[in-house]
């Protein structure tokens, strides 16, 4: 975590370009066919359970098995790798970019994520705080809960198998919680953001500053 935050520079950066650029890569090998054009408006998944898929972006065919890949976020298609259209691509090849307009809350989170230690989901599963952490959060609030390496902080539930997840980052307080207990979370997505106690005032300053400066 960096102690020095150049507010003006960071906020200036978001003011001049208040977007997140989400790159979409080929999920696996296969022949790609794009279903959108550049500048197309796309939507992310919707519905109470996020069960209504977003806008179809491209289809990828491997061994006569065609999958339609949909958008995970709202925004505009800002770039398409047309060289990949109707050709066979390797897994991981960049296919297109979606420009997602950021809201104030997202900007605060984006800045905080540069400052906090992010603890990611180890697997795609449903996540719950461990009973001890949950009761401490309920009693005192997350920002009073100190975690240190080796603490059992979360239970991962996958196919009715419960696995304790142990914290592995820097000691600190749970500043941000990025999931609701019971949410299904993809592998690698941050579950919590942890902040060293002494850096809490700095983090609060960031929030206050963005709230004050951002229209």
């Amino acid at each position: 975590m960096s102690q020095k935050i150049h507010f003006d520079e960071i906020i200036g950066r978001y003011r001049s370009d208040p977007y997140d650029y989400v790159d979409m890569h080929a999920r696996h090998t296969g022949k790609v066919r794009f279903l959108v054009d550049e500048q197309a408006e796309v939507k992310g998944p919707s519905g109470e359970w996020k069960h209504i898929p977003g806008t179809p972006l491209y289809e990828i065919t491997r061994e006569r098995n065609t999958k339609v890949i949909t958008s995970e976020t709202n925004g505009t298609v800002s770039a398409i790798n047309w060289d990949a259209d109707n050709t066979f691509v390797e897994a991981g090849e960049k296919l297109l970019t979606i420009r997602h307009p950021l809201k104030k809350k997202e900007i605060i989170e984006a800045i905080l994520q540069e400052v906090l230690f992010l603890f990611p989901a180890p697997e795609r599963a449903r996540y719950y705080f461990s009973m001890d952490i949950q009761s401490r959060i309920e009693r005192k609030g997350a920002r009073s809960v100190l975690v240190k390496p080796g603490d059992e902080i979360i239970t991962m539930s996958l196919m009715k198998r419960d696995t304790p997840v142990y914290y592995t980052g820097e000691p600190g307080i749970i500043h941000s919680i990025y999931f609701r207990p019971g949410d299904s979370i993809d592998q690698g997505v941050p579950l919590i953001g942890v902040c060293a106690e002494e850096k809490l005032p700095l983090v609060q300053k960031i929030i206050t500053r963005v709230k004050a400066d951002w229209e």
């Binding site: 359970w49 069960h51 599963a125 539930s157 996958l158 196919m159």
Partner: peptide, 8 residues
Amino acid sequence: SLLTEYSG
């Protein structure tokens, strides 16, 4: 709509 669950 279709939904796939891996837990619960």
